[in-house]
Computed example of a mutant assay.
Amino acid sequence: MGSRRAAWSVVLGVLATVTLPAAIAATRYSSSFDLLHAGFAIPVALVAGVGAVVLAQRARAIDRATLGRDTSGKAATWGRSLGILGLCLAVSATISIAVYGVLMAAD
């Protein structure tokens, strides 16, 4: 049971980490979208990052409860790390959009 949670944690962590760079790359090669439109990917990265961290914590709790017989420790660690990285990317993108908004309002 914990290994499935750990595996989904890795999947969500990868999704959280890749979402914003993929959105930025998509705006670079699109003529109809600006870089600011990549901001719509921030909630996806936030939800996936939080989901990855929560699932990793639950997988680790199951691993501890079964005295290590669940063998999902490394996958849970990867999922948690990728989820935190995705959250950091989403927070930094949110800060950059907020600063852009403040600078544009000051004009």
Rank of each mutant, 00 (worst) to 15 (best):
P21I: 09
V99K: 04
K74R: 11
Y29S: 13
D107F: 03
G86W: 01
I24E: 15
L46C: 05
M104C: 06
R4Y: 10
A52I: 01
S3K: 14
L82T: 06
L15S: 14
Y100C: 05
I97N: 03
C88I: 11
A59K: 07
S96T: 10
A56Q: 12
S81T: 14
Y29E: 12
G13C: 02
S9V: 05
V10T: 08
A93T: 03
A93G: 04
A59D: 03
V11W: 01
V54L: 15
S96F: 09
V44H: 08
A106K: 09
A98R: 03
L89Y: 07
T66W: 05
A76L: 13
L87Q: 04
G49A: 00
T94I: 01
S30F: 01
V54H: 07
V18G: 02
S31Y: 01
S9L: 01
L89F: 09
G39C: 06
V10K: 10
I42D: 00
A26I: 01
I84Y: 00
T77M: 13
G2D: 04
V47E: 12
M104V: 08
A106M: 08
A75V: 02
V10Q: 10
I95E: 05
I24G: 07
I97L: 15
D107I: 09
I24T: 12
V102E: 07
F33N: 04
G101I: 00
G79S: 03
K74Y: 11
A59C: 02
L67C: 08
S31D: 15
D63S: 11
A65Q: 13
S30W: 03
D63K: 04
V54Q: 11
A106E: 05
A23I: 06
A52V: 05
F33W: 10
G49Q: 00
A48R: 07
V47A: 12
A59M: 07
A6H: 10
D107S: 10
T27M: 06
D70W: 05
A26W: 05
L46R: 04
A26T: 01
L20G: 01
A45W: 07
V44T: 11
Y100T: 08
D63R: 09
P43V: 00
R69K: 12
I62R: 13
D107M: 09
A61L: 10
I97G: 03
R60C: 04
S81E: 08
L35M: 11
I24Y: 09
L103K: 05
I42A: 03
T77F: 11
L15H: 08
G2M: 10
V18W: 03
G73F: 09
W78A: 13
G39I: 06
A65H: 10
S30K: 04
I24K: 14
L12W: 04
A65S: 15
G79V: 04
L35T: 07
V53R: 01
R28E: 12
R28C: 01
A98I: 11
I84H: 08
A56T: 09
A22Q: 08
A16P: 09
M1E: 10
I84W: 00
R69L: 15
L20C: 05
L12N: 13
V91I: 12
L85K: 05
I97D: 03
L12E: 05
L20H: 07
S30L: 02
L46M: 12
T94V: 02
L12Y: 13
S9T: 07
T17P: 00
L55A: 08
C88L: 15
G2I: 13
R5P: 00
D70E: 15
T77L: 15
R69I: 04
K74N: 10
